[in-house]
Amino acid sequence: MLILECPCCGVKAEETELAPGGEAHLKRYGPGSSDEDFDNYMFARANPKGVHFERWRHAYGCGKWFLAARCTATLEVFGTYPAQTTEPPAELQAYIKSRRPEWEGYK
């Protein structure tokens, strides 16, 4: 069972308490952007077999959104971090790199 530590309230929450929210760090495009950018933002998703950054909500806990780094090939959880960031924290990236030397890095 998937267990993520909510960075907002500190609770180690298991899957039934959490609501998945899809890919994290999407760059948003609105009016004035090209069709291709908007199409990509709306529909195309990173769907890697390996390191994946995603949004979660502690739905049956504190109710806050947060972000998590997970491996979709093994279900290993690398860590969670607050949602108020535009990219994963450096120490988390370094930790992922130590666990997955073949990882090409964020973006």
Partner: peptide
């Protein structure tokens, strides 16, 4: 399940 996964195993709940 609601989250991305390539492991061919699902969640118990």
């Amino acid at each position: 399940d609601g989250f991305n996964n390539y492991t061919q195993r699902g969640s118990w709940q």
